[in-house]
Design a protein around this nucleic acid. Sequence first.
DNA 1: GCCACGTTTGACAACCTTGTCGGATGAGTC
DNA 2: GACTCATCCGACAAGGTTGTCAAACGTGGC
Lengths: 350, 350
Amino acid sequence: MSQHSDPVTMPYRQRATLRDVAAMAGVSIKTVSRVVNGENGVAPAKVAAVTRAIRQLDYRPNVSASALRRANRRTAVIGMVLEDLANPFSSALLRAVEDAANERQLLIVAGSVDEDQERERTLVRAFSERRVDGLIIAPVGEDQGYLRAEVEAGTSLVFVDRLPQGIRADCVLSDNEGGARTAVHHLADSGHRHIAYLGDLRIIPTAQQRFAGYQHACLERSLPWTPANHVHDLHTVDDATAATERLLRSGDPPTALFASQNLVTIGAIAALQRLGLEDTVALVGFDDFPMADLLKPRVSVIAQDPSRIGRVAAEQLFQRLDGDDSAPRRTVLATTTIPRGSGEIPPARR
Amino acid sequence: MSQHSDPVTMPYRQRATLRDVAAMAGVSIKTVSRVVNGENGVAPAKVAAVTRAIRQLDYRPNVSASALRRANRRTAVIGMVLEDLANPFSSALLRAVEDAANERQLLIVAGSVDEDQERERTLVRAFSERRVDGLIIAPVGEDQGYLRAEVEAGTSLVFVDRLPQGIRADCVLSDNEGGARTAVHHLADSGHRHIAYLGDLRIIPTAQQRFAGYQHACLERSLPWTPANHVHDLHTVDDATAATERLLRSGDPPTALFASQNLVTIGAIAALQRLGLEDTVALVGFDDFPMADLLKPRVSVIAQDPSRIGRVAAEQLFQRLDGDDSAPRRTVLATTTIPRGSGEIPPARR
DNA sequence: GCCACGTTTGACAACCTTGTCGGATGAGTC
DNA sequence: GACTCATCCGACAAGGTTGTCAAACGTGGC
């Protein structure tokens, strides 16, 4: 083990280095390096001696030192910036990327931003200081221009879920507008003409797109345009519950609800249950969620496929890492309509 | 920018280094280092020149190189080995650790093991090759002895969710046995005497503990011991659904179910619904899950608090990082009983 | 015995950073 | 004017690794 360290100041046994291995095997450091990296040009006998020493010392290459010295500078780590590691959408995304990364022996460092632009930037900075090879980002702020410096420095970059602003780069996202449009069409097909929109924070681009889809569909089907039935900026279950209750208690309540997001859908369900209207008022939610088909009525949704987004984004990133420098691509993934019951309730007699 | 690189082999503009900053500011590398690290002993004028150069070059310290050279060798990264980044329990844990890590400017690299021992070891190896400062591990294999080498090399280590084997180290977990016991008591309190056990893979220590709790409670309440009512090794929703259906269709069906885990609970609910027995057969599940209080009947559970486990584990790890070398601590967190309806259904007349 | 050639091998520098140490500078004291 | 002392600064080495290069070695042909 290292003779070059002071056992007093070092509370722990030092980790073995190339030097230690070389000393034990009776060869030069470089030869050990060659064996570790599987380069050829080392005599079988020496390979054996080196591998024995490696095993004996439980040698672990220092990947950081290696990346520092290596020509391509790759660290084999990619960074993911997500909305909230604990929410099902983000975590499915993360998991899908992890599975793809696995095949390439890449590690993932990840962080949550919670709709905080500042946090997005500090996370990216932290990743950049660790010299990650690539970044997969669900952007939150209004401007991702600051990432151009990263790209110039050679970091590959793929956005997911939301379009970036101020930079041209690959992006993989769902057809938010199309999905929302389908939801409204679906409700209109059952005869609904008073369909409320329950939406997330308007600063979120996907929320904007979903509202646009709603709007678009209303026009196409000549549904009455009733601003009182448009509720925006619902970001938590409780927000959504309260807003839905208020809406349904109003003078001219809608006969159907379109909930533009997971938590909003759940909040709406809670409100419907509280008012005993779950079998009377139709509901279609954007985003599938666990248990949707065990509730009563079972909940119809427009499903995104976060795993697929993650997988596609990872593949995109890998192509970039492999040197693809063609023009940035935007991949839009179709949503799936899953009718389960709640979206097929006909309008109540008024 | 770096004059010391070949623009042909380097496809991208190199990242600025201390050297570049020093050249631009007209000082030595070491002085720049001092400014970057906030050491004192630099004249205000030079500080200004250096900071200007840093901004102008968009200099990013190379944390890896820094850690390599630095006395304490800290990389400010911790590794997490979890069951499945996409499942709510793991992701809540991850998120809680992330929040705690944030305050210390630590980054997290994480990976899923999916009950695969082999994968646990390769992940740990990968983390170790990156020289993470600490590890938080939900162990899966039968032996974590291989981690002693990591600990000796100075890596701090905290286990979560499950006790490790073959190594003594800090561990933070829920009171699995106690929680299961409480569940059975709770059902017995409503008059049930035929309570089925629906359990996860028997190789999983937590599943063993929960079964022990079940067994313990049956003894305490002198409930009839009916092995036909003990189903083990259910690991997916579908497994659980099929097993539950089989059980309830048998000659002597139980009047209550104890589901030892999330997915099993969900599978049981699906089976109950399919048979129209959800309001007849009582159910208590181990682990809370989203939507549990929107189902009909609402589902009673024994809840763990994964966020709390994560937070406590992170704090434990930080103490170790700060030099605490007292004896390993085991922290057992109490579970919470949440009665919501399904667990309070009285036994059906037989 | 000489040379040419291919294979093995190690010395050395370099990657980017920080710790150590000593030199330069300037102010203050006698 | 000579001294101490504190402050500021840079040269240098080192951390673990890999790329470059040249030396050493063994082989085969003349």
